[in-house]
Simulated scan of single mutants.
Amino acid sequence: MKRRTLLRTAAGLAGVTAAGGAATAVRRGRNRYYDGPVSDHFDGVRFFNPGGSAPKGFSDLMRWRFGPKPTEWPASIPMIRPARPAERVQDLTITMVGHATLLIQMQGLNILTDPVWSERVSPVSFAGPRRVIAPGIAFTDLPPIDLILLSHCHYDHLDLPTLQRLKAAHDPQVITPLGNDAIIAGTGLRTEVMDWGDDIPFGPLGVHCLPCHHWSARGVTDRSMALWAAFMLTAPGGAVHFIGDTGFDQGRPYQGLGRFGPIRAAILPIGAYDPRWFMADQHQNPDEAVQGFLASGAAHGVGHHWGTIQLTNEGRDEPRDRLAEMLDRHSVDLSRFRAMEPAEVWQIPAL
């Protein structure tokens, strides 16, 4: 692992070996978000998954869009009782807000992952994928937010209106992978950027930036110009692993995690996986999520990225139902890995 200060020290160096194996000089001025050295996952303009798969192209997108119709979701699902979190929690409690937004309370800190309170996840407020259920915590009921973990810049994970609201109400710190700081600069949020392998302290926690298999874009001309990542939070009592989005990638996002000590909770995506020919490289399915959970050695799992916003073809409840089937298939007790619904609260058992 390397600390972010080491990355900054090396920021002016060129001639680093790229994925193809040839030493390549840094090409500056073509990436609108990030200007840094070539690495094993950055070619000087775009980030990529080493040994992995690039996102599908436009012709594949059209094949999907004009293929079988998605399973219809309900237009709305009532929010019976939003959660009202405690102001501070010393032990580990996780509350589902919706999609990839969760409140992690641990060590007296309040941490949000990929916060979205907007009605739609889209470049515009009047069109695009819309949430079918209200956030599991009303924005005004949030406890003081100390930290935001921002995994990548897709609209269902990086929502500028929500970040602006959080700045005004809580002024939290943001930790995010390279390049995403440029996208959120207008919010005024304090931002720390990390590369894969970096680690930084945040109060009593260690924050570690880890590889996962995905991509990024805010439009049609900025594909993979900002990095995507997973995070590990290390603390007394066990670590918390958060992946916002990932393809299974032969299990590589779950390899080598033992160095962080026992993992108390793994927060893993289980939805947006159908059709597999289009989604498999970038979105794991419930079976792969269970395989990753087992490979990581985590004691407990939280399934997210399902049931709030329809992005792909599977039905609203299918990821939850398939997760239960896969846990049974892999002989994992259902109590260890939950597909959490908005407003569901889980006080994670101690190791």
Rank of each mutant, 00 (worst) to 15 (best):
P74S: 11
H41C: 06
P275I: 08
L323T: 06
V121K: 04
A266M: 06
F242E: 01
A272P: 00
R81A: 15
G219A: 12
A226H: 01
P177R: 03
D317S: 14
D146W: 05
S122Q: 03
K56E: 13
D333S: 14
L227S: 08
M340C: 08
G238D: 05
P123D: 08
E87P: 04
P269V: 07
W117F: 14
Q347P: 06
D43Q: 01
D43L: 00
G52I: 07
T93G: 02
Q90N: 14
A299K: 10
E288F: 05
W215H: 13
M62S: 11
G237S: 07
A23G: 10
I309A: 06
A350R: 14
L158N: 01
P82Q: 08
T162P: 03
G57W: 09
D159A: 05
S151K: 11
V89Q: 12
G128V: 07
H241D: 04
L166E: 03
F202A: 09
L311R: 06
A295V: 10
D249C: 13
H154G: 03
M326Y: 11
G301N: 05
D249H: 14
K167F: 05
D245A: 15
C209N: 08
A185C: 06
M106F: 11
L257E: 01
F293L: 12
W73L: 11
T221N: 11
S53I: 15
A23Y: 09
I80R: 15
Y155I: 03
S296Y: 03
Y33H: 06
Y254D: 10
D333R: 10
Q291Y: 03
R264F: 06
T71W: 09
L61V: 13
A22H: 14
S122R: 03
P269L: 08
G261A: 10
P177H: 09
P82H: 06
L189K: 06
F66W: 13
R28N: 00
F202E: 05
K69R: 15
D141E: 13
A272K: 03
V124I: 12
R3V: 15
F278D: 00
H214W: 13
R320P: 01
